[in-house]
Amino acid sequence: MKVEIFTHKSCTECNMLLEYLDQKNLLGKVQVIDTELYPFLALERGVISTPSVFIDGTLVYAGNVDFEELEKLLEGTKISKKVNKDELVEKLMAGIVDSFAATSWIYVNMDFDSFMAQKDFVLAVTGLVFAEDKEEMYNYLRNIMIKEGPKYVDKWNERILRNISSNFVREIYWLYNNKIPVEDIKKMYTLQIFAHWLMVRGGSTGRVGLRIHSIKEADVMSRIEKAYNYMLSNYDKLWEKVENEQKLLNQLENRRSIVF
């Protein structure tokens, strides 16, 4: 059995997973691939959320990993699940808002037909990858999301805005290494610049997946303005969250003796 885990050093979940596997003496059974060092390999494999876990080439977890379940898989236990139809949309949306790439791409483009074509990701985040009737259930979910996707974006609006805003603030943290006052953020990063960042940064590498919308597109800019205002209104809380996250990452890194 070949197990590959795609990670990123800034991903808290990745570091917690690696620490768990290290404590269980299971790291020797997996190949850890840093997406920062091997971005094109990650793109080739369709990685849009970390950690992404592949077993014999099949994506089984994306973003949120059941540590104990993965431990069983590594020990040779076969996993089979019955997934409730009524839970599929919630599981998918939870998987989407766990991924900045997925969240931003959906939020800006509102194109669920194209997104649902990322079948491996959909199967992984919903748990359908372990279901015997996964094809039937996937088609059922795909039809729902194509028809009613915008409704679920509205329902998950708070989580979506928090994801986008947190990632923007996190990048400000990385760029400047100290807190920039919110008034300076307003001057340095106007709504138009924020919109450009969100369209280019979210879910695209080079021109792969890139869709540039005109700032004259009222519906797109209206959504982006909501995210922009949310970021400004919650800037201090988001900054504190990012700082605490970085401290945790440093602690996890110091506790582990793993050389990438």
Rank of each mutant, 00 (worst) to 15 (best):
S114E: 11
M93D: 01
V97P: 12
V108F: 06
S104L: 03
D113F: 06
L92E: 09
A117D: 13
I96G: 12
D111R: 12
Q118T: 09
S104I: 10
W105V: 10
S114M: 07
Y107H: 09
I96K: 05
W105Y: 09
Y107W: 06
Y107C: 14
G95R: 05
L92W: 03
S99I: 00
W105N: 15
F100D: 04
Q118M: 09
T103C: 06
S114C: 15
D111C: 10
L92P: 05
L92Q: 08
Y107L: 00
S99P: 02
F112Y: 01
F100K: 07
V89T: 08
V108I: 08
V97S: 15
F100C: 03
M116S: 08
S99Q: 05
A117E: 15
W105G: 05
D111G: 15
K91N: 02
G95S: 07
S99C: 01
A117W: 09
Y107P: 13
D113H: 10
A94E: 06
A117F: 10
D98A: 12
A94W: 03
F100Q: 08
F112N: 09
K91H: 01
D113C: 10
K91I: 02
I96S: 06
F115Q: 07
G95E: 04
K91V: 04
V89P: 02
Y107N: 11
I106P: 13
A101R: 04
M116F: 13
M116K: 07
L92Y: 02
A94I: 10
M110Q: 13
L92I: 07
F115V: 12
S104H: 09
A101W: 06
G95W: 02
N109V: 08
S104P: 11
A101N: 05
K91F: 04
D111T: 08
D113A: 10
I106F: 09
A102G: 00
D98Q: 08
G95K: 02
T103M: 06
F115W: 01
W105R: 14
A102E: 01
V97K: 08
V89Q: 00
